[in-house]
Structure formats: C-alpha cells, structure tokens
Amino acid sequence: MSNKIDLNKLSPQQLVDFRKSIDQEVTHFTQSLQALQAAQSKLKECITSIDNLEAGKSEDLLIPLTSSLYIPGKVVKRNEYLVDIGTGYYVEKSAQDGKSVYEAKIKKLDQDAKKLKDILVEKNDLLNAVNLILRRKVIELEKQQQQQTATS
C-alpha cells in the first residue's frame, strides 16, 4: 500500500467506518471465490463426462430433455465433442483436446483462486488489527469517563 495510515491515530468513528468497508470487501471477495469454485466444479464435471463417455463400451445413453425426463439415445460419433470456448463460440474437438481446454481453464481458475485467497488473508489480518485497536480505544474511553465521574 502506498499511503500507510497509522490506525492508532484514527478516531473510533473512522475506525468503525473503515471496518465496515473492509467487511464489504471481504464479503465481495468471498463471493467471488465461491463463484470461482462453482465454475471449477462445473468444468470438472465436463472432464468426467468426457472420460465416462470414452471409457464406456456401450453406445447407449440417456439424453435429458428436462431434469426429470430422459429419452434413450445412441452415440453416433465417438471422440468428437463440441466445446464451448466462450462468447457463444463452439469448436469441434477430440476427447483429448476437449479435456485439455477444460484442464487449462481449471488451472487458470486455480491461480485466480489462490490470488483471491491471499487477498482474503490480508484483509482478515487488517480486520483483526482494526478490531484490536478499536477495542483498546473503547476501553480507554470508558476509563476516561470513569475518571471524570470519579472526580466530579
């Protein structure tokens, strides 16, 4: 961070506001992380589907029309898949190539997730520090008030 501020110099009100904004950031990053993990598990499902289809000897399969309605079908061509590469483009690929597309995507998501986790750890540390200082300030304030009531 370029502009380091001494947290001890902030007023309790500022600290509370600061904590609120960190909280918001943490929620935002946690949501992003969850979205990344959801995307990853979807990609993993694609790979398992390819593996299953390639490993299976039989050509019969059930095609879902809805989530609870299926019709029997047959695999016409093996080793030929249409892979979604994004923004509405689909490319015909072999099982191996299709899998490598998904694997590359998963790897990239892994890297992003790692970066996000690092940020989250950093933010949590900051949050703890703010909480600590805030608590100290509150205790100080209470002491001051007690002294005032004692003297008056």
Binding site: L82, I85, G86, T87, G88, Y89, Y90, V91, E92, V101
Partner: peptide, 18 residues
Amino acid sequence: IVLAEFENLNEDSKIYKL
C-alpha cells in the same frame, strides 16, 4: 480467452457460433 483459443486452432477446425 476466446482469441487465445483460436490461436491454438487452424483452418480445419470446425467452429460453430451460438
């Protein structure tokens, strides 16, 4: 990402647009 994927393909690749 899509463009990077296209770099790995060649003229013979069958491409479909949704």
